[in-house]
Nucleic acid binder design. Structure first.
Lengths: 234, 234
DNA sequence: GTATCTACTTACAGTATTGTCAGTTCGGAA
DNA sequence: TTCCGAACTGACAATACTGTAAGTAGATAC
């Protein structure tokens, strides 16, 4: 019987992928997974599909990441750390916080949320396990808030005016993040049909938001709802 | 052979659910599905689990909704139409738009997003199929925008000041919706650990946002990014 | 009272997907 | 060179979920 040995492909079988470094393959897998997630949602995140995209067999993914769950964690870790790095760099470079147009900071977060697929990833993550703590997010925002506070205090010396409180800043940052996050997910759904390109409207919205937030932080401080003073039950 | 006839339960079998009206059963199924979705995410939305919650067999769900997909659609339809009704009622009642505290409108949307699980439902929906059009959302927001515009023009006659453009209002409404949506999904992740109750912080944020938006619409109009309006940037 | 419609059930088919296993090849270390 | 670990593979096991089929029973119409 001349049956071909099914146990393994012959040595120079073209189907067999030339051996790569673990890093290389893992990166390719994560890239493909990210693309799948961005396009089709969590349901489209099947090991066999990802494997086909990369050109490997699906057990190879399990070999590298242990389990599907492990792959997801790696995916999330990579996405958040990339964002953290970029935000950190922007903050330290001194640009982007109180910039005229709302700053590259908003842009970079928006881009990570949209093109980077971070919004979809985070949404999926939160949907799956509402109680899961995503402590990275809290850390980043806290850091941004602190940086902005310092920056605004410096600015105050130059321009005068009273700087907003830390809670004011925190809420403003929170609003920015929520808006970018929400926009990435459902922005296109909210766009009015009037405008032909929904994408353009999204960009325009982002610019508008940048100005609104900057203006707000700059001077027009919205008074916080009755402080911890005798809170009248509404 | 004393084995019970497996073909169907005997007439007074306690396992057999007493016959209900279709509406009743469908409502119970939708309730259970909504609870599952809110707690555990889309992965937890399995027919067998839902059936067990209600106390029926899973083919009964298929009998009522045709397919799992049909169930999801019904779930979404119910959620959005509930929101649409409430928003419509609030708008027609004349309250909630330019109210001092941001209005019951923000509250009601926020509640639907949070407790109603609308945010999770929509997020799941969008994640699954990014290209799916959720036209209901566009309709509602367009309606809100128009109502606010009229309201503000009336107010202008009384208080003076120039009313914001329609795009201004649209962006503001969009911001409000995005914030509520995002807050329902990841608000708790962004809350600073400083505050003990994250829920309280979320409410406080909502109130603050209401004031910010109201103040913005009222007078401090942020100039839109350069467009045909030759408005001088700040 | 009979017929019919439909709410509801058990049993099962079909299928898809994750994870395991044993084996092959390659690169680097001893 | 020899040997070992790891990248990689095809085949398969295990599981789980949706959907179908066929049958029972209660309600309503006639």
């Amino acid at each position: 019987m001349v049956e071909s040995p099914k146990k393994a492909p012959s040595r120079s079988d073209p189907r067999r992928r030339p051996r790569q470094s673990a890093e290389q393959t893992q990166a390719e897998i994560l890239d493909a997974a990210g693309r799948r997630l961005a396009e089709g949602g969590p349901d489209a995140l099947r090991l066999q599909d990802i494997a086909r995209d990369v050109g490997i067999s699906h057990p190879t993914i399990l070999h590298h990441f242990g389990s599907r769950e492990g792959l997801m964690e790696a995916l999330e870790k990579r996405a958040t750390s990339a964002l953290t790095e970029e935000v950190g760099r922007l903050l330290l470079s001194g640009r982007g916080v109180h910039d005229e147009a709302g700053g590259p900071l908003l842009e970079s977060v928006g881009r990570a949320m949209n093109e980077g697929g971070l919004a979809r990833l985070v949404a999926w993550w939160v949907l799956r396990d509402p109680s899961a703590d995503h402590e990275e997010a809290g850390k980043i925002t806290a850091r941004v808030v602190e940086l902005i506070r310092v920056r605004l205090e410096e600015e105050q010396d130059t321009l005068g005016g009273r700087p907003p409180s830390r809670e004011e800043i925190a809420f403003t940052v929170r609003l920015a993040v929520l808006a970018m996050f929400g926009d990435a997910l459902i922005g296109s759904q909210l766009a009015q049909v009037a405008t032909p390109q929904k994408n353009a409207e999204s960009e325009r919205f982002r610019a508008w938001l940048g100005q609104l937030l900057a203006a707000h932080l700059r001077g027009a401080v919205t008074p916080l709802p009755e402080e911890h003073t005798g809170s009248k039950a509404d």
